[in-house]
Design a protein around this nucleic acid. Structure first.
Length: 1014
RNA sequence: GCCCGGUUAGCUCAGCGGUAGAGCGCCUGCCUUACAAGCAGGAUGUCGCUGGUUCGAAACCGGCACCGGGCACCA
């Protein structure tokens, strides 16, 4: 093992650290250190101090995509901030078994191998599924770690693991006891591809170009003529119309006609009123079916006649219920026609469609075929049209659960961020339909129901009685109690068979916020984790699963975390989360949602390898300023690069170098050894805070306050942007530049001058150390690895930590480019930046006036630089600078900052004059050729006769004049309006006047200078 | 049909009553001993259209157009 290079933290020499930040080693090292020290393993404690998040468990369907990285970045930023705030933070990770998705993948694999799940058998199939889970789950967990997720891996859960299964069984049982789970035969969405029922939510309507076939259905002839023919009011007064002998119906699914059991017309439709009650001879089938009147039929659409197929269409099903029509199923579960379809039996449903149309045409019953664009329900997973099919399934009665949630929402629970999503949630909970939860799949939670098959000849039928139980023994006991005696009397031993089906994945996901915390617990004892961390503080997820997941969680929590009217366990709410932070989706460069199936996903690992996890995180979070909005990630597929992430990487590099600069200039000291820069104390010591110090400390305090406020209220993008600007545009661009002169005490100084310079140097060092250190803390939630590394560098913690030899340190620690020589041992775990307190806000440092004044100073320097650039002065060419200002605060500031101005503008000299002094000088010496610029009321002159490009100067002045003139026109126009002066607030009017005066002064100055150029 | 968003610089987006901002890109000049993944300077917009409210509208209200999304769905 290489020696934990004692040279690495020798930060004084410029050679100690490379010029560019290399994230790979740093990130791996800290991930390892955080984990091995248990930094993110909280213990249960008082609820008051707790903060908890359960992560949305990714499906074990392969690997993570950018959406997960985005979600992770947001959650981790939030929980890391809360940790810095001193909360007892639990962030609980896990994965979801994704029943149908995983089964689909496995079946596809088997098919490719020439087999099928039925060849394999249920047990072997499940074995294979678990092997898949191990692999995919491992990949995903590895990716989450790579992002630096500060979760408690000890508490990692999988929706199919034993603890969660216990919760699922318990939930099913209790819902069943409450009558909220029932079994029955209904029309469900059947996915022929996966051979299972799916819920309404798993169906996606797609517009397709289809046909509308008009079919002629002959009426059954009346036994005797005339009786009913003239009875209809429609016939009117005139000639009796020829008697109607058929109806025409239109359909998009002709094959379903084989299951027709009626034709319906609107009850108010005069054309057909007389026919209601008569019958039709169903073509191809020969069945005699009634004509019924039902308000569902729109008389204006098509012919106003609708064929009714109760077993194959939801609307028809409802009509059938109203009229007591038989339900004839003509299709099998694999999407082929069954025996009831007569000669069409065995044909695939789409083949049958063609065959039925052909047959009707052959019989002269096809009236016409129209192209017709309409919506067809497709299965989300199977990607084929779903078939409404009658079958016996388990359902959750949704309305009572939804009602509780609607009630809670009226009380503001949960709080949606952004608020508008609450409406989407509420609307879905209104007029909700029952939830079909059984799936004809193998991979999932087996339904805890046992059929007493001995009661129905050894097979499961719709009529077979069942018991719901926690396990087979309990089922047997229950069955024995209910059916035992009768069965013995009848001489047939009780025979049980567990329901072969599994539960909808979302049933187990719906329990996630409490099942992961130990619900339902043992023997009625409340689990400690549940007591501490339920309700969770916030759920962070995409808007696309508000119905699937968010609403299911609130509904199920309402069933279990409530005792009577009160939340269980003495909590203040049964809701699984206080806030729901809804974010958008990550879209690709063409604004398409990134998804695996669309093939446009970007592997987060690719970007992490190129730019670092911190850069990716920062880039993603920075993009979310308008929360709830989708984010578009630019990406060049040819080169696997992203300008957005690259910019974040550059920021990381900027921080690296700022720290490098500090370490080279702090003389080996740390914030602790330097001590806090306290204004009063420094004053007493005769080395007071300088202007720039006070300014940056004022800015630091304000940024501290703003950032904490933003992090705490889901303004993560704004927090990121604010810190970026502060770090780069203020700390680096100005503060560091301003103090360079003070940090480098010249060796030529002697005696008292040297003592004073060294004292002032210490002041600057103190401020720099404080600003940098606190900046790193504030940035930590966004860029955890880099800040952890730099913070250790600044604080010199690495020295102490490496002193013990770090027995378990991996070899890579000593690599070049690491600030810390190694992660601290467990004893030093609390020395992690991740576990530091948020910097105390220094209220006294806040100074709005100073910030404003300093902004003016910066602007003045900018004007000088601009003038120099316009005049084409060489960067190194010194030039005198003259400021003319009548405003004392600024003038004083300029005088005070003369050394800084000199350094930052390459000034040969700096003088600050009042307008009167300037006039006097002018009168004495005559006009001088000079560059002139204006910033507010401040005039800036660079008297550099002979050095300048006169044409460029003229151009510049003419531009100034034009600009000022335009401004004068606008402002004067406003002031000329009597209503403005009368109605606008006085301060606005005053500001307007001041601006006008300044603009006029600017124009005049520029004109004068132009004239003086000759 | 119902309900949400969006339309601002070449691109991605902030701003949400006081006469336009950032990042990237672009142009000019700089290897200034923290950083060329950088520094300094610069250019760039009838703020979708149209009425209205207001002293004042990118912002508030009405209408329209276009783009995106969700829900429901008539055979």
């Amino acid at each position: 093992m290489p020696e934990p290079a004692s040279s690495a933290p020798t930060l004084a020499g410029p050679d100690a650290l490379p010029k560019t930040y290399d994230p790979a080693g740093t990130e791996a090292r800290w991930q390892q250190a955080w984990e091995s020290s248990g930094a993110f393993h909280p213990d249960p404690g008082p609820r008051a101090h707790a903060f908890s998040v359960v992560i949305p468990p990714p499906n074990v369907t392969g690997s993570l995509h950018m959406g997960h990285a985005f979600n992770t970045a947001l959650i981790d930023t939030i929980v890391r901030f809360q940790r810095l705030q001193g909360r007892n933070v639990l962030c609980l990770p896990g994965t979801d078994h994704a029943s149908i998705a995983v089964q689909t993948i496995l079946e596809r694999q088997l098919k490719a191998e020439g087999g099928s799940k039925d060849d394999l058998g249920r047990d072997a199939f499940l074995e294979r599924a678990w092997a898949w889970k191990a692999e995919s789950g491992g990949t995903i967990v590895g990716q989450l770690r790579r992002l630096g997720y500060s979760v408690d891996w000890r508490r990692e859960r999988f929706t199919l693991d034993p603890g969660l299964n216990k919760a699922v069984v318990e939930a099913f049982l209790r819902l069943h006891e409450q009558g909220l789970v029932y079994r029955g035969e209904y029309l469900v969405n059947w996915c022929p591809a996966s051979g299972s029922a799916v819920s309404d939510l798993e169906v996606e309507m797609k517009e397709v170009e289809g046909h509308l076939w008009h079919l002629r259905y002959p009426l059954t002839p009346l036994p005797e003529q005339g009786a009913a023919a003239g009875a209809g009011a429609a016939a009117g007064a005139s000639e009796p119309e020829p008697p109607i002998d058929h109806l025409v119906v239109a359909t998009t699914r002709p094959e379903t006609m084989l299951g027709d059991t009626a034709v319906a017309v609107n009850p108010g439709d005069p054309r057909y009123a007389a026919l209601v009650g008569r019958t039709i001879e169903l073509p191809l089938v020969g069945r005699r079916i009634p004509i019924v009147a039902d308000p569902h039929v729109d008389p204006a659409f098509g012919t106003g006649c609708v064929k009714v197929t109760p077993a194959h269409d939801p609307n028809d099903f409802a009509i059938g219920q109203r009229h007591g029509l038989p339900q004839i199923t003509v299709m099998a579960k694999d999407g082929t026609m069954n025996e009831a379809a007569g000669r069409f039996a065995g044909l695939d449903r789409f083949e049958a469609r063609k065959a039925v149309v052909a047959a009707m045409e052959a019989e002269g019953l096809l009236v016409k075929t129209e192209p017709h664009r309409h919506s067809v329900p497709f299965s989300d997973r199977g990607k084929v049209p779903v078939e409404p099919l009658l079958s016996t399934q388990w359902f959750v009665r949704a309305e009572p659960l939804a009602a509780r949630c609607r009630g809670a929402l009226e009380q503001g629970e949960p709080r949606f961020v952004p608020e508008r999503w609450s409406k989407v949630y509420r609307d879905w909970l209104t007029d909700i339909r029952d939830w079909c939860i059984s799936r004809q799949l193998w991979w999932g939670h087996r339904i805890p129901a046992w059929f007493v098959v001995s009661e129905t000849g050894g097979v499961i039928t719709e009529a077979t009685p069942y018991v719901v139980a926690r396990h087979e023994a309990e089922a047997r006991a229950k069955a024995e109690a209910q059916f035992g005696a009768a069965a013995r009397a009848a001489g047939r031993p009780l025979q049980l068979e567990q329901d072969p089906d599994v539960l909808d994945t979302w049933f187990s996901s719906g329990l996630w916020p409490f099942s992961t915390l130990g619900w339902p617990g043992e023997d009625g004892q409340e689990p400690a984790d549940l007591a501490t961390w339920y309700p969770t503080s916030v759920l962070v997820t995409g808007f696309d699963i508000i119905f699937f997941w968010v609403a299911r969680m609130t509904m199920l929590a309402g069933a279990f975390l409530q005792e009577g009217e009160e939340p269980a366990g003495g909590r203040d709410s049964w809701m699984p989360f206080r806030d729901v932070y809804i974010h958008g989706l990550v879209r690709d460069e063409n604004n398409r949602k990134m998804s695996k199936s669309a093939g446009n996903g970007i592997d987060p690992l690719l970007l992490i390898e190129r730019y670092g996890a911190d850069a990716l995180r920062f880039a993603l979070v920075r993009e979310v300023a308008g929360a709830g909005q989708d984010i578009r990630l630019d990406y060049d597929r040819k080169s696997d690069t992203s300008a957005t992430v690259e910019a974040a990487r550059n920021f990381a590099n900027k921080l690296w170098n700022a720290t490098r600069f500090a370490l080279m200039n702090l003389g080996g000291e740390t914030p602790a050894s330097l001590g806090e820069p306290i204004a009063a104390a420094l004053e007493r010591e005769g080395r007071p805070l300088q202007l720039a110090d006070r300014w940056i400390l004022a800015r630091l305090a304000r940024v501290n306050r703003e950032t904490a406020e933003r992090y705490g209220s889901y303004g993560l993008g704004e927090a990121a942007k604010g810190l970026y600007e502060f770090a780069w545009n203020e700390v680096c661009d100005w503060y560091v530049e301003l103090i360079k002169r003070r940090l480098q005490v010249s060796g030529e100084l002697e005696g008292a001058a040297r003592t004073a310079a060294l004292a002032d140097q210490r002041t600057a060092r103190q401020v720099l150390a404080k600003v940098l250190s606190e900046l790193l803390v504030m940035l930590h939630p966004l860029m955890p690895h880099l800040t952890e590394e730099l913070w250790h560098g600044v604080h010199g913690v690495a020295f102490e930590a490496s002193a013990d030899g770090s027995a378990d340190t991996p070899g890579e620690q000593a690599e070049a480019g690491s600030l810390a020589s190694g992660p601290p041992g467990s004893a030093a775990a609390s020395a992690f930046l991740a576990l530091q307190p948020w910097p105390t806000l220094d209220e006294a440092a806040l100074d709005g006036e100073l910030e404003e004044a300093f902004a003016a100073l910066i602007e003045a320097i900018r004007v000088v630089r601009n003038l120099r650039a316009v005049a084409g002065l060489k960067p190194a060419q010194p030039a005198p600078v003259q400021f003319i200002s009548g405003r004392e605060p600024l003038a004083a500031l300029l005088r005070q900052a003369t050394p800084e101005i000199t350094a930052l503008t390459r000034a040969a000299s700096v003088s600050v004059l009042t307008p009167a002094e300037a006039e006097a000088a002018r009168a004495a010496a005559g006009p001088q050729r000079a560059l002139a610029g204006v910033s507010g009321e401040l005039q800036v002159l660079l008297p550099i006769d002979g050095l300048v490009d006169l044409d460029a100067l003229r151009g510049r002045l003419e531009k100034d004049i034009a600009k000022a003139t335009k401004e004068i026109q606008g402002l004067a126009g406003r002031l000329a309006n009597p209503n403005f002066a009368g109605k606008a607030p006085p301060e606005v009017v005053a500001e307007c006047r001041a601006n006008l005066a300044e603009a006029e002064a600017q124009a005049e100055l520029a004109k004068r200078r132009l004239a003086e150029l000759g």
